[in-house]
Amino acid sequence: MGAAVCNWCKRLEMPIIVFAYLALIPLLSVNMASEIIIFSIYALSYNLLYGFMGRLSVGPMLFLGAGVYGAAMCCVYLTANPIACIAAGIVCGALLGMLLGPVTVRAAGAAFALVNMAFNQVGFFMIQTGLAGWTGGSDGKSLYFDPIGPLDFNKPNHVFGLALVCLLAAFFLMRRLTESPFGIIIKTIKENERRGNFLGYNIYGTKLLVYVITAAVSAFAGALYAIMFGYVTPSFISPARNIEVIFATLIGGRGNIYGSLLGGAIFILISSYLPNIIQRWELFFGLILLASVFWFSKGIPGIMDLFGPKKQDVNASAKGGLR
């Protein structure tokens, strides 16, 4: 793509995204479209950690759950104002990220993945059993949010509008973040952490900041989930569901913010419609996952490259050597 085409694309990308999601409503339903949008916000945040920084975490549900439960507890015990609840959810996620980040970002690779999963397991356990007196345990709690003026988030259309605005905000944040000099440091951590350290960048601080941003944006998506569904259960923090967002990021293409939108939509569609066709859909989900690791590890953008015009890939040989 030439530079001129790129500039033209960028100016129009926000309207195109809005139009694409509005077009989903007649095809699917308002609720399904909202779910896709919220899941895409979650996938965007995870893509920053895994796609751009190269740190696979098997515990992002912890931060989603922090947002869900932060918003829900705010709604039940403090105020039912939805905006205040979203803020409470984000603050919960960010604080949890700041608390766990100094421990987790010291690890890399497999240790990072599994330490996050361990904390996710602890969080799940605390929500389900430890703090069951407040959170409602495995029964969960149902929520009712007050309307603000003409906006009533108990109506699906209003939730859709809120989710779309939030998605645009998250998308804008991720685009600015990954294209900034800070974003280049993030990619440096993925490619060669030691060299970044040697050049004098604050690698530890960057990793911690990325971890906290991921936590906060995941919690943002979680708070929106709480508003959309109107109830909370421990399934929103269950470590068994971590694979969903990993799948979305892998299939959409790692390190590609459009990929998160695509992967998020694909996952929600698969998980909603495949069970209607095949009862054992998790089996097929596992097979798709296995196939995408072995043959399409670059996700859908990689598949499209196969059919598109041949590009000169300067980095291909270098990347193969660095593994």
Binding site: L56, G109, A110, A113, I243, I246, L283, F285, G286, V293
Partner: peptide, 23 residues
């Protein structure tokens, strides 16, 4: 392979096996 892909692949095996057990 890189560590993240090995984790995802063995996780996929875990999911497949789990569903067979449930079956």
């Amino acid at each position: 392979e890189s560590v993240d892909l090995t984790i995802i692949a063995t996780y996929a095996v875990f999911l497949i096996g789990l569903d067979v057990l449930k079956w």
